[in-house]
């Protein structure tokens, strides 16, 4: 199988911060807003370099979303930064009316998504945000897998007109995608070709999917691995092509199995090419305090869980 190397673990939020720093230099229309989490979101460089284009709104996310919507009028491209929980659930109606329905060019950038936020516990560990955002008409939903991809995505979404939800996380994770990658919104990335099972992963689970594929290879199972960074619009053609070949699929995401990537894949299959599917995701539950590794183990979101699900789904073919 194709080898991927961790070039040095980094947090995806730093990919966002560094992407934003580059945008600050290259795109004078980019403005940034933050709700009292500048350090956590790694927005400090942008703030320092472009104080006139940085807006600290305090702990007031609803106001931040409204201000961002208003700032598009006159040609600015606002990037909002706060935790995923406060970027979505807390401000759903503001996003729905003032951004999505109003077709405003706002980039909602959300860190600390999912269980890997860790010790802060369930109040902050949103596992429903992909579902909330993908249900909004016109919203693009992106969940990146490593530092390099997050940086590339941050830069790419500035060029895309329309509302975008960009989801990333807190912990340092393997950095394995190319530094010079071209990020194409809505395009799946085929990481490994295989014939027995397709593993479709997003976010932090993509690296786990690669580890799982290696383990499966040792067991004589050939796994195809697809990195879906864009959950909406979904690259249905790539998914169907792969499952047409392997005949079964495991989806893997740091999100509730209700409303996440897995459901989008299932819908695609039901409409086009029904096939057995297993879900590596949280099972309609809240999280809890713990280290990221402990939580991913407890809630079954790692390579071992993907291996198990793959073996199970192959038997269902």
């Amino acid at each position: 199988m194709k080898k991927y190397t961790n070039t040095g673990s980094k947090d995806t939020r730093s990919g966002f911060g560094d992407g934003l720093t580059e945008l600050g230099k290259n795109n004078p229309n980019v403005v940034a807003l933050c709700a009292d989490l500048t350090g956590s979101l790694k927005m400090g460089d942008f703030q320092k370099n472009h104080p006139e284009r940085f807006f600290q709104v305090g702990i007031a996310e609803a106001n931040m979303m409204g201000i961002a919507a208003g700032m598009t009028i006159g040609g600015k491209i606002p990037f909002t930064g706060t935790f995923a929980n406060f970027s979505t659930g807390r401000v759903y109606d503001q996003i729905r009316q003032s951004i999505a329905y109003s077709d405003k060019n706002v980039k909602i950038c959300a860190s600390h998504a999912g269980l890997t936020l860790g010790e802060d516990g369930a109040t902050h560990q949103i596992l429903e945000d992909i579902g909330l955002m993908k249900m909004l008409p016109g919203m693009t939903v992106i969940n990146t897998c490593d530092y390099n991809q997050t940086k590339a995505a941050t830069i790419a979404i500035a060029e895309h007109h329309g509302p975008v939800y960009l989801r990333f996380g807190r912990p340092k994770v393997a950095n394995f995608t190319p530094e010079d990658q071209k990020f194409e919104i809505g395009k799946a990335v085929l990481l490994n070709e295989g014939k027995d099972v397709t593993i479709i992963a997003t976010g932090h689970l993509v690296w786990e999917a690669l580890q799982a594929a290696e383990e499966l290879e040792e067991k004589g199972i050939s796994a195809e691995v697809i990195n879906i960074h864009t959950i909406k619009p979904l690259d249905e053609a790539a998914i169907l092509a792969s499952i047409g070949k392997t005949g079964c699929v495991v989806t893997a995401e740091e999100h509730n199995f209700l409303g996440g990537l897995g459901e989008s894949v299932a819908r695609t299959l039901v409409q086009n090419h029904p096939a057995p599917q297993e879900f590596v995701a949280t099972m309609d539950t809240f999280g809890e305090s713990g280290t990221p590794e402990q939580l991913m183990e407890k809630y079954g979101l790692n390579a071992a869980a993907i291996v198990k699900a793959s073996e199970k789904v192959i038997k269902r073919k």
Binding site: F55, N63, G66, G70, P78, S98
Partner: peptide
């Protein structure tokens, strides 16, 4: 309750 935030945003951009 959303319009004042939007108006502030537009004023910022101006």
């Amino acid at each position: 309750g959303q319009g004042l935030s939007v108006a502030i945003g537009a004023a910022n951009t101006k």
